[in-house]
Design a protein around this nucleic acid. Structure first.
Lengths: 175, 175
DNA sequence: TGCCAAAGGAAATAGTATAACACTGCCGCC
DNA sequence: GGCGGCAGTGTTATACTATTTCCTTTGGCA
């Protein structure tokens, strides 16, 4: 995988804006929260945002070494990733052991992820109905929720129909 | 972790019956499907069913070596696990890198898992409302689903309230 | 200035998973 | 009976993912 920016469900999508927007939001949020978005953390966040395809920790590590010439070891990356997750700036996709940028870190959310088997792109949703259905089930079991993760694997509209008949979903992930 | 059988949300629960039932169902299903539940595969299934706490591949490996005196290497275990997953006899809990027995392998299902942080027990649900809500969201995105995994971390009724006021959920997982 | 806590560097190791190849036993077939 | 193929397992090596531990640096602050 060397693609720079296969957009959310691919195609026409100004990913540079996507990234700079994410970095700006991150910076503002961290300042407001009184936590430090150090250069390293910011750089790792940028690398995660390189595309909408989840990135592995060791791929980030490679880029830090190769592109930045930085001396780095696994803990360097994992610590940065841990910070970014605490701040909800990124999410971990459990079924891929990889990380993806969060489209709206300011809002607390229990998100769902649609993961395309073909292009690898992850589309983040924040659907109340799904979360509510899960909560209702948990309640019936007397179970109190800390964290819910919903990961759906399949084929995205663009990959299923490259011609483009599926028109209604482009950009929804970045809205 | 050495506990033999912390039941589904713990306590009074005949786990031996749970296991023998699972093994019997597995045997019948495999026969019907014309696939071979070999002694190794059956043994691995039994080890997964040792409790309702998900078991890691390397823990299974240890038990095969120590308890059975069998010469075994990782591929031995992973191949058996892969077979069992294909037959839906077990599930993989992505967020734990571990495996748990399926409570009803005969039915095709998109299950949800409630994972207790304290006792480790996983309760499997099969709620149509959750699956439907996810499908509806996917449809709107033009996304076609292969597989959905819902993993909810939190505290189960027994751990939250050991006194036992939460009474309605015991055994629901095995029903 | 001196202290403290957070952040990051560095080395080692733990934990999880797969690739590649060899061996065996079973089954169908001529 | 001999042969070929295949599923299942054994064996070795290696890849990939993550954490522990200790140390150094940095930045804020009394």
């Amino acid at each position: 995988m060397t693609e720079p920016a296969p957009g959310p469900t691919a195609g026409q999508h100004d990913h540079k804006a996507c990234v700079s927007n994410a970095l700006a939001m991150a910076s503002a949020l961290c300042q407001r929260r009184g936590v430090r978005l150090t250069p390293l953390r910011q750089r790792v966040l940028e690398l995660v945002w390189r595309s909408h395809v989840p990135v592995g920790a060791y791929e980030i590590l490679d880029r830090l070494r190769v592109e930045d010439g930085r001396s780095a070891a696994p803990p360097t990356v994992y610590r940065a990733l841990e910070f970014l997750m605490e701040q909800k700036l990124i999410h971990r996709i459990e079924s891929l052991n990889a990380f993806v940028g969060c489209i709206d870190p300011s809002r607390p959310h229990a998100a769902q992820y649609l993961i395309c088997r073909q292009c690898g792109t992850v589309t983040e949703l924040d659907d109340g109905a799904v979360a509510a259905a899960i909560q209702e089930q948990a309640r019936r079991q007397g179970f109190s929720i800390d964290r819910q993760s919903v990961e759906v694997h399949g084929t995205c509209g663009h990959c299923a129909d490259p011609a483009g008949a599926a028109t209604n979903h482009a950009e929804t992930a970045t809205a």
